[in-house]
Nucleic acid binder design. Sequence first.
DNA 1: AGTTTTTTCAAACAAGCGTTTTAAATGTTC
DNA 2: GAACATTTAAAACGCTTGTTTGAAAAAACT
Lengths: 225, 225
Amino acid sequence: MIATVTKNQKPKIATRRRLIEATARLFSLHGYNGLTMRSVAKEANANLAAANYHFGSKDALVLEMLRERIQPINQRRLQLLEIYKKNQPKEPLSVFQIFRSLIQPIGEEISKSASSRCSLAQLVARTFTEPTKFIERMHHRFFSQIAEIYYRELSLIYPNAPAKEVYWHLHLAVSSMLGALAQHRRLEDFTKGLCTEDQVDEMIDRLIHFVSQGFTHGLRNSTQS
Amino acid sequence: MIATVTKNQKPKIATRRRLIEATARLFSLHGYNGLTMRSVAKEANANLAAANYHFGSKDALVLEMLRERIQPINQRRLQLLEIYKKNQPKEPLSVFQIFRSLIQPIGEEISKSASSRCSLAQLVARTFTEPTKFIERMHHRFFSQIAEIYYRELSLIYPNAPAKEVYWHLHLAVSSMLGALAQHRRLEDFTKGLCTEDQVDEMIDRLIHFVSQGFTHGLRNSTQS
DNA sequence: AGTTTTTTCAAACAAGCGTTTTAAATGTTC
DNA sequence: GAACATTTAAAACGCTTGTTTGAAAAAACT
């Protein structure tokens, strides 16, 4: 039942790859419920049964696709945090640096996948709006630990601030980030063409500033050390 | 086919009401695709055919429900803007007041509907993530004009700022608002119980501050008059 | 070579979807 | 009470969904 490659590790990985890529495209366009096995098969030029053969179920297919997309972003986040820390071993990170490390990697991945730029933004954002149970599991698996890391970094800057206060604004910052990613496709329409959807770098840059400022100035009892 | 009440204006409005209420609950929980006519009928203790009889189609049912929810909020927004203006006819509105008028009405409606507090937040937020075409129509019908009004108000405060700049940050502010509404249900989980989901007023209050600060300090060339 | 494993393919499965259609039941008006 | 419009009720209509099946094709291995 399960595909186990014994020796030659690359017998015909093409189909499996195409299925995942197609899933990513269609998921970001239409969400979980809007994605059908038949549409995936068609988009990937594969047979309907292929997806079930390679992944077992629709859930497993989408989950694998998400894991593949999200994990590199999270690794890059931690990497950026480490880089910033090494560059200034004496002083603690700034709020701006922290949110830069959180948001920048998404921008990098969006820019990397040249075709259909906003699809990854849509994908990440949709991950937080889809109500399905398996997405809930997803969050606990991929986002809960990284959220904890960022909470710790921020509370290092505001050692006297109540934990509740830091959590509140981290929550708002993350929500803003996700909202901005989700709404990005509407940018051009919303601004009557003044801002175009392909200005991903500018969006990311502005978003980092926006969130940092909101966090810094919105924080009550902000007894910064 | 279409229900037209001739004389006695309230023949049996109960079913129609229950259908809309059920639609609101299920829509905010499961989105458009996750909402089925059968689940609506069951939730409303009505027959499967009742919804189609009263509204004609699933689209029309959901659209009517959304209209009923969104229009009072938009009216209240404009009303708040007018009130603030009357209270200070000489000086222009502040950024804080503008975003207060934008966000506060949602909090009021959430608090009003005592049962299932976060459902309206979910509902409004979902309205912006659902990809369905009829929701796109929805936006142009109910949100495009009010977005224009808020752009004008903000550009009154920053008369020298480029339109693009104001649009950019209004977009970010609105995205943050929607993100915060969408993520509200995750607040308790995200903050490990420190912040509870029923603290709607606090969330709204913090959100207004967060967004105002992000807008004010994030704005480049912010030559405030 | 031959054998076995892996992959593809077309077809069918049961279940759920929005909608329509019938009829009966209920309420309203004269 | 009769005639009417309005509302329920149950069943069925096509259609799409995720998944399974069984045989054919391809690839890998000895």
